[in-house]
Protein backbone atom coordinates (compact mmCIF):
# COMPACT_ATOMS: atom_id res chain seq x y z
CA UNK A 1 0.00 0.00 0.00
CA UNK A 2 2.68 2.49 1.04
CA UNK A 3 4.60 1.66 -2.11
CA UNK A 4 2.01 3.34 -4.29
CA UNK A 5 1.93 6.28 -1.87
CA UNK A 6 5.67 6.80 -2.18
CA UNK A 7 4.97 10.09 -3.89
CA UNK A 8 2.42 12.50 -2.52
CA UNK A 9 0.30 13.95 -5.27
CA UNK A 10 -1.98 16.95 -4.94
CA UNK A 11 -3.95 19.44 -6.97
CA UNK A 12 -4.60 22.93 -5.59
CA UNK A 13 -7.43 24.79 -7.28
CA UNK A 14 -7.59 28.59 -6.83
CA UNK A 15 -10.84 30.05 -8.14
CA UNK A 16 -13.46 32.68 -7.44
CA UNK A 17 -16.53 31.34 -9.13
CA UNK A 18 -18.50 28.54 -10.62
CA UNK A 19 -17.52 26.44 -13.63
CA UNK A 20 -19.61 26.73 -16.79
CA UNK A 21 -17.72 24.89 -19.53
CA UNK A 22 -16.89 21.23 -20.07
CA UNK A 23 -17.23 18.23 -17.77
CA UNK A 24 -18.31 18.43 -14.14
CA UNK A 25 -15.27 19.24 -11.96
CA UNK A 26 -16.67 17.12 -9.12
CA UNK A 27 -16.50 14.01 -11.33
CA UNK A 28 -12.86 14.69 -12.18
CA UNK A 29 -12.10 15.22 -8.47
CA UNK A 30 -13.64 11.84 -7.65
CA UNK A 31 -11.47 10.23 -10.31
CA UNK A 32 -8.35 12.00 -9.03
CA UNK A 33 -8.97 10.88 -5.46
CA UNK A 34 -9.47 7.29 -6.58
CA UNK A 35 -5.99 7.50 -8.14
CA UNK A 36 -4.48 8.71 -4.86
CA UNK A 37 -4.44 12.41 -5.76
CA UNK A 38 -5.95 14.86 -3.28
CA UNK A 39 -7.72 18.00 -4.47
CA UNK A 40 -7.69 21.17 -2.34
CA UNK A 41 -9.73 24.25 -3.20
CA UNK A 42 -9.19 27.89 -2.26
CA UNK A 43 -12.06 30.24 -3.07
CA UNK A 44 -10.82 33.83 -3.34
CA UNK A 45 -13.30 36.52 -2.40
CA UNK A 46 -12.80 40.24 -2.25
CA UNK A 47 -14.86 41.70 0.53
CA UNK A 48 -18.08 40.11 -0.64
CA UNK A 49 -19.10 36.51 -1.06
CA UNK A 50 -18.39 33.89 -3.72
CA UNK A 51 -22.00 33.35 -4.53
CA UNK A 52 -23.86 30.29 -3.36
CA UNK A 53 -23.22 28.22 -6.48
CA UNK A 54 -19.49 28.93 -6.48
CA UNK A 55 -19.14 28.16 -2.77
CA UNK A 56 -21.15 24.96 -3.13
CA UNK A 57 -19.05 23.80 -6.05
CA UNK A 58 -15.77 24.59 -4.29
CA UNK A 59 -16.89 22.53 -1.29
CA UNK A 60 -18.07 19.63 -3.43
CA UNK A 61 -14.81 19.48 -5.41
CA UNK A 62 -12.70 19.38 -2.22
CA UNK A 63 -15.03 16.86 -0.65
CA UNK A 64 -14.90 14.57 -3.69
CA UNK A 65 -11.15 15.06 -3.99
CA UNK A 66 -10.43 14.14 -0.37
CA UNK A 67 -9.04 17.60 0.30
CA UNK A 68 -9.87 20.80 2.13
CA UNK A 69 -11.78 23.89 1.05
CA UNK A 70 -11.31 27.42 2.37
CA UNK A 71 -12.86 30.70 1.22
CA UNK A 72 -10.40 33.55 1.91
CA UNK A 73 -9.41 37.14 1.09
CA UNK A 74 -6.62 37.58 -1.50
CA UNK A 75 -3.91 38.38 1.07
CA UNK A 76 -4.62 35.12 2.89
CA UNK A 77 -4.21 32.89 -0.18
CA UNK A 78 -0.49 32.30 0.46
CA UNK A 79 -0.91 31.25 4.09
CA UNK A 80 -3.94 29.10 3.29
CA UNK A 81 -2.24 27.35 0.37
CA UNK A 82 0.69 26.37 2.57
CA UNK A 83 -1.42 25.24 5.48
CA UNK A 84 -3.59 23.10 3.16
CA UNK A 85 -0.69 21.51 1.31
CA UNK A 86 0.95 20.44 4.56
CA UNK A 87 -2.27 19.30 6.21
CA UNK A 88 -3.24 17.24 3.19
CA UNK A 89 0.19 15.61 2.97
CA UNK A 90 -0.16 14.64 6.61
CA UNK A 91 -3.67 13.29 6.13
CA UNK A 92 -2.66 11.20 3.12
CA UNK A 93 0.23 9.69 5.06
CA UNK A 94 -1.88 9.07 8.15
CA UNK A 95 -4.32 7.10 6.04
CA UNK A 96 -1.53 5.17 4.33
CA UNK A 97 0.21 4.34 7.61
CA UNK A 98 -3.07 3.35 9.21
CA UNK A 99 -3.82 0.97 6.34
CA UNK A 100 -0.33 -0.48 6.60
CA UNK A 101 -0.77 -1.08 10.33
CA UNK A 102 -4.12 -2.68 9.65
CA UNK A 103 -2.56 -5.18 7.29
CA UNK A 104 0.40 -5.94 9.59
CA UNK A 105 -1.15 -5.81 13.06
CA UNK A 106 -4.82 -6.10 12.23
CA UNK A 107 -5.31 -2.88 14.17
CA UNK A 108 -5.87 0.67 13.01
CA UNK A 109 -3.76 3.48 14.49
CA UNK A 110 -6.83 4.51 16.41
CA UNK A 111 -6.91 1.24 18.28
CA UNK A 112 -3.39 1.65 19.60
CA UNK A 113 -2.91 3.00 23.13
CA UNK A 114 -2.15 6.75 23.25
CA UNK A 115 1.58 6.39 23.87
CA UNK A 116 2.16 4.07 20.90
CA UNK A 117 0.05 6.31 18.74
CA UNK A 118 2.36 9.22 19.52
CA UNK A 119 5.26 7.14 18.23
CA UNK A 120 3.40 6.37 14.99
CA UNK A 121 2.75 10.06 14.52
CA UNK A 122 6.48 10.66 14.70
CA UNK A 123 6.96 8.34 11.71
CA UNK A 124 4.23 10.20 9.80
CA UNK A 125 5.87 13.57 10.49
CA UNK A 126 9.19 12.26 9.27
CA UNK A 127 7.72 10.82 6.07
CA UNK A 128 5.86 14.03 5.41
CA UNK A 129 9.13 15.92 5.31
CA UNK A 130 11.03 13.35 3.28
CA UNK A 131 8.71 12.04 0.58
CA UNK A 132 8.53 13.50 -2.91
CA UNK A 133 5.62 15.87 -3.41
CA UNK A 134 4.07 16.57 -6.79
CA UNK A 135 1.66 19.46 -6.85
CA UNK A 136 -0.30 21.05 -9.67
CA UNK A 137 -1.61 24.53 -8.94
CA UNK A 138 -4.67 25.37 -11.03
CA UNK A 139 -5.34 29.08 -11.34
CA UNK A 140 -8.64 30.51 -12.46
CA UNK A 141 -7.74 33.45 -14.75
CA UNK A 142 -11.24 34.46 -15.74
CA UNK A 143 -11.93 38.20 -15.91
CA UNK A 144 -13.22 38.53 -12.32
CA UNK A 145 -9.82 37.39 -10.99
CA UNK A 146 -8.05 40.37 -12.58
CA UNK A 147 -7.34 42.49 -9.46
CA UNK A 148 -6.62 39.39 -7.35
CA UNK A 149 -3.95 37.99 -9.66
CA UNK A 150 -0.98 39.88 -8.13
CA UNK A 151 -1.68 38.30 -4.74
CA UNK A 152 -2.29 34.86 -6.28
CA UNK A 153 1.01 35.00 -8.18
CA UNK A 154 2.80 35.99 -4.99
CA UNK A 155 1.08 33.12 -3.19
CA UNK A 156 2.25 30.52 -5.73
CA UNK A 157 5.79 31.86 -5.65
CA UNK A 158 5.65 31.72 -1.85
CA UNK A 159 4.29 28.19 -1.82
CA UNK A 160 7.04 26.99 -4.12
CA UNK A 161 9.69 28.66 -1.94
CA UNK A 162 8.23 27.20 1.22
CA UNK A 163 8.06 23.71 -0.25
CA UNK A 164 11.68 23.91 -1.35
CA UNK A 165 12.60 24.02 2.36
CA UNK A 166 11.32 20.44 2.75
CA UNK A 167 13.89 17.68 2.96
CA UNK A 168 12.21 15.71 0.18
CA UNK A 169 11.85 16.79 -3.43
CA UNK A 170 8.91 19.06 -4.22
CA UNK A 171 7.77 19.45 -7.80
CA UNK A 172 5.24 22.16 -8.64
CA UNK A 173 3.47 22.77 -11.96
CA UNK A 174 1.12 25.66 -12.73
CA UNK A 175 -1.92 25.48 -15.02
CA UNK A 176 -4.10 28.49 -15.91
CA UNK A 177 -7.65 28.45 -17.19
CA UNK A 178 -9.23 29.66 -19.41
CA UNK A 179 -6.29 29.71 -21.79
CA UNK A 180 -5.93 32.68 -24.13
CA UNK A 181 -5.47 30.27 -27.02
CA UNK A 182 -8.31 27.81 -26.88
CA UNK A 183 -10.31 28.93 -23.87
CA UNK A 184 -9.57 25.71 -21.99
CA UNK A 185 -6.48 25.07 -19.82
CA UNK A 186 -2.81 25.86 -20.40
CA UNK A 187 0.26 24.60 -18.57
CA UNK A 188 2.36 27.73 -18.05
CA UNK A 189 4.90 26.06 -15.77
CA UNK A 190 5.79 22.38 -16.18
CA UNK A 191 6.95 20.49 -13.08
CA UNK A 192 9.88 22.24 -11.43
CA UNK A 193 11.46 22.44 -8.01
CA UNK A 194 11.39 26.24 -8.18
CA UNK A 195 8.56 28.11 -9.86
CA UNK A 196 9.88 30.75 -12.23
CA UNK A 197 8.60 34.26 -11.62
CA UNK A 198 8.51 35.05 -15.33
CA UNK A 199 6.45 31.91 -15.96
CA UNK A 200 3.83 33.19 -13.54
CA UNK A 201 3.66 36.44 -15.50
CA UNK A 202 2.28 34.35 -18.36
CA UNK A 203 -0.78 33.71 -16.22
CA UNK A 204 -2.84 36.26 -18.13
CA UNK A 205 -6.37 37.10 -17.25
CA UNK A 206 -8.52 36.08 -20.21
CA UNK A 207 -12.13 36.57 -21.03
CA UNK A 208 -14.28 33.56 -21.68
CA UNK A 209 -15.88 30.89 -19.54
CA UNK A 210 -14.62 28.99 -16.54
CA UNK A 211 -13.63 25.46 -17.63
CA UNK A 212 -12.83 24.13 -14.15
CA UNK A 213 -13.57 20.49 -15.10
CA UNK A 214 -11.28 20.40 -18.15
CA UNK A 215 -8.60 22.21 -16.14
CA UNK A 216 -8.73 19.54 -13.42
CA UNK A 217 -8.49 16.95 -16.19
CA UNK A 218 -5.31 18.65 -17.49
CA UNK A 219 -3.82 18.58 -13.97
CA UNK A 220 -4.72 14.92 -13.58
CA UNK A 221 -3.07 14.05 -16.90
CA UNK A 222 0.07 16.02 -15.94
CA UNK A 223 0.39 14.07 -12.69
CA UNK A 224 -0.18 10.72 -14.37
CA UNK A 225 2.41 11.40 -17.04
CA UNK A 226 5.14 11.73 -14.43
CA UNK A 227 7.68 8.91 -14.63
CA UNK A 228 7.28 6.48 -11.77
CA UNK A 229 10.54 6.75 -9.90
CA UNK A 230 11.08 3.96 -7.45
CA UNK A 231 10.92 5.38 -3.98
CA UNK A 232 9.63 2.08 -2.75
CA UNK A 233 12.96 0.79 -1.47
CA UNK A 234 13.24 3.51 1.15
CA UNK A 235 9.69 2.97 2.34
CA UNK A 236 10.09 -0.77 2.55
CA UNK A 237 12.37 -0.21 5.53
CA UNK A 238 9.36 1.02 7.46
Amino acid sequence: MLRSEARLRQILLITDGCSNIGENPVDVAVEAFRKGISVNVIGVVDGGDMGRAGRQEALSIADAGGGMCRIVEPHNVAATAQMMTHQTMQLTLQQAVSQELQSVLGKTTEELPPEERARVSQVVDKLQEELTLELVVLVDTSASMKHKMAMVREAIQDLSLSLSARLGDSQVAVVCFPSRHDGMAETIQPFTSKVDESALKRCYVASGGTPTGPALRTALTLLQQRPNEDDGARLASL
Partner: peptide, 23 residues
Amino acid sequence: FGRSVRQYTPTYDRGFWGLGSRT
Protein backbone atom coordinates in the same frame (compact mmCIF):
# COMPACT_ATOMS: atom_id res chain seq x y z
CA PHE B 1 14.61 24.62 12.53
CA GLY B 2 15.37 24.63 8.84
CA ARG B 3 11.98 23.29 7.71
CA SER B 4 9.39 25.43 5.99
CA VAL B 5 6.88 27.30 8.13
CA ARG B 6 3.52 25.64 7.55
CA GLN B 7 1.17 27.67 9.69
CA TYR B 8 1.37 31.44 9.92
CA THR B 9 -0.67 34.63 9.92
CA PRO B 10 0.32 37.14 7.21
CA THR B 11 0.22 40.21 9.52
CA TYR B 12 2.93 38.70 11.74
CA ASP B 13 4.87 36.82 9.05
CA ARG B 14 8.46 37.72 8.22
CA GLY B 15 7.95 36.85 4.54
CA PHE B 16 4.84 39.00 4.16
CA TRP B 17 6.81 42.12 5.16
CA GLY B 18 9.79 41.18 3.00
CA LEU B 19 12.02 40.82 6.08
CA GLY B 20 13.28 37.35 5.24
CA SER B 21 12.41 33.81 4.31
CA ARG B 22 9.63 31.60 5.59
CA THR B 23 12.01 28.99 6.89
